[in-house]
Amino acid sequence: MKIWKRILIVTMFAFSAFGASAQAKLQINEIMVNNKTNYVDRYGNHSPWIEIYNNSGSSANLGGWYLSDDPNNLKKYLITKGDRNTIIGPRQFLVFWADGNAFYGTFHTNFRFEPGREATVYLADPSGKLIDSMTVPEMASMQPNVSYGRTSDGGSKSAVLEKPTPNINNESVNQGAANERFKTNDPWGAGMSITAVMVVFLALILLYLVFKYTGKFHVRLSHNKSKAKSKNTAATSAAANSDEGISGEVVAAIATVIYQMQSNSHDIENAILTIERQAANYSPWNSKIYGMRQTPQLKK
């Protein structure tokens, strides 16, 4: 039985470890296809770009990974190994230029996006396994200086982003959106207040209902237990009466006397006291040095 328990625990740990490692760490976060006057590379060109996001609490190295626009060739562009600039800090970004000019450096891919066409980017790990992909719809690809990406960094929802944010948080695009929405639709705050009070009540009413019935169940359970106990006691005392002729009252009287005797023979506390042995290896009280006097010497 113990072995099975251990196997179960080990399996659970293995699954949780697998679950943690399988979580996406590097993600395609934002893409701009039709870059007219937006982000500029160090050669002064406005090229399409791809933003990769490190959705983890530790640094990740993109060196040896692949970017591609072809589902049949996920290893189309190898991101240079050994370039320390390919390390992305936790919750940080890296932008690649999809300009077809790989000889410009590590961050320029050997494929290019064409404005007005649907574009898909594939991110594969060093073994060529697909980790993430993102498709920019034709509509987003047509509009100049508009990107397509996750509405929140690493989030599951993607949309056209009117304000592109290469190398910075996508959330900043929507910053203030909620404020504006509430200012327009709920200037007095009544809508928010009613909704929020309802939700608070809903959560706490559920808690109330669950514990109302849990409590009733427990009260009934303890009643049943005490009933069963009293039945057993009655049966035992009946059996005792029939066997030895001692009534319940006598048993109670004996118990009371024993209790009183115990109380008298003991002081007031009824808790269990544990006295731990304190082992002191050294104490000046048992030191021989302190017990000795210097031998008197005659000074001349």
Partner: peptide
């Protein structure tokens, strides 16, 4: 709270203060 769970609703009602202040702050 567990022994008298209906008291949890009093805790919910008192949160109205948050939203009262929210409305006044907006004003």
């Amino acid at each position: 709270l567990i022994s008298n769970p209906k008291l949890v609703l009093v805790g919910a009602a008192a949160q109205t203060g948050i939203f009262g202040a929210y409305i006044i702050a907006l004003l």
